[in-house]
Amino acid sequence: MEIISGKWKVVILWALSEDHKRFGELKRAIPDVSEKVLIQHLRELEADGIVHRESYDVTPLRVEYSLTSHGIALNEALKPLGAWGREHLPIEV
């Protein structure tokens, strides 16, 4: 639970579940998160072995984030929780 603590970590995991993304793509996929918090959570998830950061030596600097095998397994473990939430929690419109 400590690995996914924080308001945005699970959202980041879901955003990375489809494919690798650059920082700007993640920011657009999660518009309500601040840049500072997104950077902090990505660093924490990388340190925990959940997210892989790939830096390319090109100009301008290009960095992509993707899930590690542990991150993919964590996303799979969270799917039933997401299904439960969709079934039992009211959706605010």
Rank of each mutant, 00 (worst) to 15 (best):
K7V: 03
K7A: 04
A29Q: 03
F23W: 15
P90W: 03
V37E: 14
H52E: 07
L45A: 04
D19R: 09
E87S: 14
I50Q: 01
L74E: 06
T59L: 14
D57Y: 09
S66I: 03
E54H: 04
S5A: 13
R28E: 15
H20N: 12
G71V: 00
H88T: 15
G24W: 01
R28W: 02
D57W: 08
L13G: 01
K36E: 08
I50C: 00
V63R: 11
G71Q: 00
D32K: 07
A29G: 04
A77F: 10
M1C: 09
E54M: 05
L61N: 09
G49H: 04
H52R: 10
I39H: 11
L89C: 14
G71P: 02
L13N: 05
K7G: 00
I72V: 02
L45D: 00
I30C: 02
V11A: 03
L13V: 02
T68M: 12
P80Y: 10
R22K: 13
I12V: 04
V11G: 00
I39E: 12
W84I: 14
P90K: 11
V58R: 06
E35Q: 06
I39W: 07
R43G: 07
V37F: 04
V58E: 09
L45R: 00
R28V: 11
G82L: 09
P90Y: 06
I3S: 12
G85K: 14
G82D: 08
L74I: 04
D48T: 03
G71Y: 01
E44A: 12
I12C: 05
P60W: 06
P60L: 03
A73T: 07
I4H: 02
W8G: 01
W84P: 02
H20R: 14
A73M: 06
E54R: 03
R28C: 05
I3W: 08
Y56S: 09
K79D: 14
A47V: 06
E18F: 08
D19W: 00
L13A: 06
E44H: 08
S55C: 11
V11W: 01
A15R: 05
H20I: 05
K9Q: 09
H88D: 00
M1K: 12
H88F: 15
A47K: 15
R62N: 12
V10G: 08
S17R: 09
E35M: 02
I50G: 01
L26W: 01
H52Q: 06
V58Y: 01
R28D: 13
A83L: 13
L16V: 04
L89G: 04
